[in-house]
Design a protein around this nucleic acid. Sequence first.
DNA 1: CTGGAAACGGACCGATTGGTCTGTTAGGGT
DNA 2: ACCCTAACAGACCAATCGGTCCGTTTCCAG
Lengths: 197, 197
Amino acid sequence: MARKRDPESREKILEVATRLFDARGVHAVGMQQIVDEIGCGKAFLYSEFATKEELVIAYLNRYREGVMVTMAQAEARFPDDPARQIVAMVGIVAECSLQPGFRGCSVRNAHAEFPDEDHPARQIAIEYYDEVHGHLMDLAERAGAPDPRTLADRIMLIVDGLHSNAAARGHDGAAPAATAFAEDVVRAALRPLSHTQ
Amino acid sequence: MARKRDPESREKILEVATRLFDARGVHAVGMQQIVDEIGCGKAFLYSEFATKEELVIAYLNRYREGVMVTMAQAEARFPDDPARQIVAMVGIVAECSLQPGFRGCSVRNAHAEFPDEDHPARQIAIEYYDEVHGHLMDLAERAGAPDPRTLADRIMLIVDGLHSNAAARGHDGAAPAATAFAEDVVRAALRPLSHTQ
DNA sequence: CTGGAAACGGACCGATTGGTCTGTTAGGGT
DNA sequence: ACCCTAACAGACCAATCGGTCCGTTTCCAG
């Protein structure tokens, strides 16, 4: 053998692809653009990812893993306090969503860009949503919520709405109110008998 | 003159375009597909809309007007009861969003499909969001909410989350819980001093 | 130093897109 | 009845896409 393959090739490609896909959308970014941005030949890219679809799948799975890591970090700030962990998770999503140039959740955007029911991106989206929702239900249960599913549903709605609203309106929209909203929702869910009539 | 132009041409084109754009996304639908579906020649379509962009703009404005009409109808069910009107609006959005094949809010999807900051679709999206949010604030004020803006923000988040979540997960997601959620949020917003500590 | 594999650079291919143009059909006003 | 024009039908064009291929350069193992 003459030259040995760089084992970080995939990661480098995925970093560039993530930046471009997130900024412009999957369809709007051509393989040539990715190649130009990386500064390599097309053959190199295609040796690591046989098709654009494979690259997109890897991009989405990488995003998904990154979100789970970020969520875990947010939760680590409040160990053994599931209620605060839920709010912290919404907080970190709000923080990310309000950064300039934010265009929405990558998985959700990809879901919208591939209308075919059987496209792999659909499967990833469903698994991702299930994963987040399941995790939220787990936290809600540990927080002592009498109806963990409903609390998880509501937090999911806030997070999804946050992504969508921030992408379109940023600080001018409803996103900055999301964290306080989540706080109230969690508090209300944990004190279900406190409604004064 | 020999033949007179059908004044409903635009509307017929827009109906077909709306069906295709909503089902498959703007980028995924070609002008040829629209022409084939209508059963007309290309020249006819291009005589009514000079470019695809013009057609997309008209499609988005039509969607926007339709939503405002639907909202007004929902509110008409509870005259002089702004609190119930807010909940009814979320209810009608939930109903629409849970129909099979729903792919999300057309304006939001278009916003995601056109990454260029200065694309007209962006302007429409911002105006649309402002319109809905302003209307919600008006309802919240008339309902006697001490903080109409926050209530409007929260309902916006629920509605946006509803669209997004329903598009990906349908009845298996968090969308079915949205109406009850909105009900609780409105109730809590109108009784801000009822929190037992 | 040298051979050879890896990577670069870009020409190339077929398919598809938005949009134009031309030839033909057909229907209503006079 | 005649004709003028709206509308149909589809060939056509330039641009762009994903993906392949090939000649050249580069760099490391031996």
